[in-house]
C-alpha cells in the first residue's frame, strides 16, 4: 500500500494501460458486431481513440515517473555536494 502511494504515477500508468487495452478491445467487439459502417464508426472513435489516448497518457505518466526519480536523485547529489563544501 505504501509502495502504491509513493509510486502513484506508475500505478496510474498501469491502470491507464489496462483501461486503454480494454477500450480498444471493447471497440473491436463493437465494430465486429456492427452490420453497417455507419454503425461501427462510433466504436472506432470511442474504443480506438479513447484507448489510444489512455495508453498514451499511461506512457506519459510512466516516463514522468522516471524523470521524477532522476530529479530526486539529483536532489540527493546536490544535498551531498553542499554538505561536503
Amino acid at each position: 500500500m505504501q509502495w502504491a502511494r509513493s509510486q502513484w504515477d506508475r500505478v496510474g500508468a498501469v491502470v491507464l494501460f489496462v483501461a486503454g487495452a480494454l477500450a480498444v478491445l471493447l471497440g473491436w467487439l463493437g465494430v465486429s458486431r456492427s452490420a453497417y459502417s455507419a454503425e461501427s464508426l462510433p466504436y472506432i472513435v470511442s474504443g480506438g481513440f479513447f484507448g489510444l489516448l489512455a495508453v498514451a497518457a499511461g506512457g506519459v505518466l510512466w516516463l514522468s515517473a522516471d524523470l521524477r526519480d532522476e530529479w530526486r536523485k539529483l536532489d540527493s547529489i546536490e544535498q551531498a555536494w553542499r554538505e561536503q563544501q
Binding site: V60, L63, S64, L67, W71, L74
Partner: peptide, 13 residues
C-alpha cells in the same frame, strides 16, 4: 501536449 510535457521534463533534468 504529452510530448511537450515530457520534453520540458527532460530539458529540466
Amino acid at each position: 501536449a504529452g510530448a511537450a510535457w515530457l520534453f520540458a521534463g527532460m530539458r529540466a533534468v
